[in-house]
Amino acid sequence: MGKQLTKLRRRKDARKELDAIDERRELALIIHYSCESFYDIKDGRTPRITSIAVRNFASGQTTSVSIHKSAEQNGVPINEITDHYDRLEKEMLEEFFAYLATVPVQRFVHWNMRDINFGFQAIEHRLKVLGGTPTVVEDFRKFDLARGLIALFGVGYAPHGESGRMHSIMDINSITAKDALTGAEEAKAFEEAEFVKLHQSTLRKVDVIANLLERTLDGSLKTESSWFDQHGFHPQAVVEFMKEHWVWSLIAMIGVVVGLGSRVLGWL
């Protein structure tokens, strides 16, 4: 399949998934989390989790777990969290996965949570490392809004920049970045043990993702995409379709021949 036809297929698939989410909003959960920067880890281990937030798209109700809440529940002063991190992280993750068990059919809308570096697998792996057993969310219950926007509007819908497309699309749509830290800011906050700030950033980002999802569904999301990308059409797609479907190519050729024949008869 040609490049432009592939784009059209991906756009159609993304729109179909979004329509399904829109029809059952009460079953859509927005999820995001914060963690230690995986770029700064030199010993090969996976990043420690600091907080996770899940927001119901329909009601706006948000469930969250965080390392500083786990510390408070265990009577550990916030300035001593790093000394007890593994134990506190395990309890935090067990609380999160216990919550997941209560939402067995819901759909999770996320932003780039798709691999062992940053994603569901990373969270699952952390609990396994700490001696626990995670609840696995099936892939068909996950929808990556970041990839969905690319499928709908093309890679040029927002510049990646230094802070990533989430912050860029927020700027384009005048969505305030209050409390939403960039990747570099989150890494610094973790190094300085500012766990409350990281939790606030996670809560803000699930709110932002919900906002972007809402604007995508109602058609009000502003992007920097070209007209062709915004409307899911490119002239090259017609050429690719004609090449892949010989019947239509034959009809087009017959049309050209008939047209030329008519001109010749007219000249005679």
Rank of each mutant, 00 (worst) to 15 (best):
M1V: 11
Q4C: 10
L8G: 02
R10W: 09
R15A: 15
E17C: 06
A20N: 06
A28N: 05
L29I: 05
Y33I: 03
C35M: 12
E36N: 08
S37H: 02
K42F: 03
I49M: 10
I49H: 01
T50C: 07
I52C: 01
R55F: 01
A58Q: 02
S59F: 01
A71V: 04
G75I: 10
G75V: 07
I78K: 14
T82N: 11
D83A: 14
Y85C: 04
L88P: 00
E91Q: 14
E91N: 12
L93I: 03
L93A: 05
E94G: 03
E95C: 13
Y99R: 09
Y99P: 01
T102F: 08
V105T: 13
H110I: 13
H110D: 06
W111E: 06
W111S: 06
I116L: 15
G119S: 11
A122H: 13
H125E: 13
L127F: 09
V136S: 14
V136I: 15
V137H: 00
V137E: 01
R141Q: 08
K142M: 08
D144R: 06
L145W: 00
L145I: 05
R147C: 04
A151I: 04
G154P: 02
G154V: 09
H160N: 11
S163Q: 12
I169H: 02
M170R: 03
T176F: 06
T176K: 08
T182W: 07
E185G: 08
E186A: 03
E186Q: 09
A187Q: 03
A189D: 01
F190T: 00
E192S: 06
L198N: 01
S201W: 01
R204T: 02
R204I: 00
V206N: 00
D207E: 10
L212R: 00
L213K: 01
R215A: 06
L217K: 02
G219V: 04
S220R: 13
S225W: 10
H231E: 09
P235G: 12
V239A: 11
E240L: 09
F241Q: 05
E244A: 07
W246G: 06
A252P: 06
M253N: 09
V256N: 08
V258T: 12
G261R: 08
V264C: 08
V264Q: 11
L268F: 15
